[in-house]
Design a protein around this nucleic acid. Sequence first.
DNA 1: TTGAAAGCGCTAACAT
DNA 2: ATGTTAGCGCTTTCAA
Lengths: 337, 337
Amino acid sequence: MNGTAKTRPRMRDVATEAGVSVKTVSRVVNRDPVVRPETAARVQAAIRRLGFRRDEMARALRTGGRSRMLGLVIKDLANPFYSAIARGVEEATRGGGALVITGSSDEDPERERELALQLCERRVDGLLIVPSGDDHRYLLPELELGVQVVFIDRPPEGIDADTVLLDNIGGARAGAEHLLELGHRRIAMIGDDQRIFTARERKRGFCEAMRAAGVEPEDALVRLDVHDAATAEQVTRELLALPGPPTALFAANNRIVTGALRALASTRRELALVSFDDLELAELLSFPVTAVSYDAAELGRRAARLLAKRLEGEPGPPERIVLPTTLIVRGEEEAAA
Amino acid sequence: MNGTAKTRPRMRDVATEAGVSVKTVSRVVNRDPVVRPETAARVQAAIRRLGFRRDEMARALRTGGRSRMLGLVIKDLANPFYSAIARGVEEATRGGGALVITGSSDEDPERERELALQLCERRVDGLLIVPSGDDHRYLLPELELGVQVVFIDRPPEGIDADTVLLDNIGGARAGAEHLLELGHRRIAMIGDDQRIFTARERKRGFCEAMRAAGVEPEDALVRLDVHDAATAEQVTRELLALPGPPTALFAANNRIVTGALRALASTRRELALVSFDDLELAELLSFPVTAVSYDAAELGRRAARLLAKRLEGEPGPPERIVLPTTLIVRGEEEAAA
DNA sequence: TTGAAAGCGCTAACAT
DNA sequence: ATGTTAGCGCTTTCAA
């Protein structure tokens, strides 16, 4: 089967085949215009005959320059939010002919660190990180050595670096305002683990909007540190069972709204619903869900573009880019409480 | 800002710092037990002081062996089906310490080729490809040079290679059989572009099940080459408007079932629905959808494991692995037609 | 217009 | 137990 394990042709082989020196082959491969056309043609012929492809890694080693590889560390490639980011990074990167090495940290700070450092060992030109950890000082040595890093979705901690974020506060505020404008006053919120930056921001936006409308958020109606759909389902049930149950719910992410929807489906209760994160097929759900939506791929694109600028030597202090959200209103007919 | 653009420490620097030779540093880095503990300690100290990290690329160049990078070419990283595959590949790869470079072909055969070849230039150890093209002979030179390739979701054309597939025929057959068992006879099918391998297989499975039950598929009820949700919605409307409309529909993928659901929602008609591909939140939809489900990540895991075996030198003819599907029955109460 | 030699950062083979 | 030399595949001097 594999008896003919041929060896990969090197420039030397092409040179011999074409009757020229290695350097001439190198020139042809690099489209150096100084080579005489007929020499170039002979070399090209040899290249094709041998099926030669330059070793990009060897080249990168010698030129000492860019490897034209970017490292991307996200939490979970199987999660549509992160895969959209990855796709955005890839898109924005493609033009420059660079490739992207992606790894999932699974929200494990240790794994994030390992991945980031492994990527540095592979000599990626830059790093894009959706942080899981809460201390990014491990990157300091690499930063000093000129590795460029851009953070996505959450800012780094312990170091200062370019960051691309969503407008979590504004989005949450818009969601709460929507419910307030519909006349709701008993508005509950279910939020994620408050150790997470985006969870804190969303809670803040929600509370700001409430207070701005003269409604003090009630402790009993603001449930935090809910990290999965099952818990969210349970918490929604508890909220509905309250003596003075809420008439509306702000669900701070898609796992939470999924749980809430399950609770509503099984209890046959009604609740005006606003979710941070849109749902696929939302228009086909049995229950209308107004959503705070955004372009996840754009997070990746902007981050990749910022990274590219830095790699081209763009100076200046770390930037913080904040991307807007959009409110998608559904089930307009809902009456107020 | 960047005035202190320090240069990356090499083994030489560590050697000087520790007062030993480069080779000794190399030994320490590679955990060669032959170095005296106290020497090793001195070297380790120097490594930490300088923030040294071995250049994996230079190492790979010298050892001539594995680069410990895999290339993955899929159609679209933003599509959950493919990102699940990517995640599976990553999972199965992680153990070996290898990293994965992923690229999206966007169903463009030319881009698939470019990506695959670019990955070879980066000297990946192996390639995992979800084919878009219909001619993979461009890989022949690389195969001869020992690059290992495993195909995912569709077999290659023009070459023979390891492949990991879903049981498209069996899944489609199970879906159709389910509808037949419910008593349906006028069963429509909407299928994707028949140039696509999986689309052909699913059609075949559907028709096989129908004929096995003594029902000849009607031309008017079998609509093919429907590639997006909007078209599927339109086609569903047309099917419903037929003089003798179907009582059930087999939708050959998730885009198609989405369109069908939209058509049903807007026309308020009923139709027993089976979909190849499960839907997220299916249990919360206003309309029950029985689904042919499968583990997309497992496609990636199995492919990566097969690739790993080949890289370890496992001989033998190309394997074809077929993964099973599961029928998830919903809305059992549906009466027959 | 072309080529010879040196070296990128590392390790394999051979000293010592 | 440690060091020296050569060379992976390529490009960068510098010469011819």
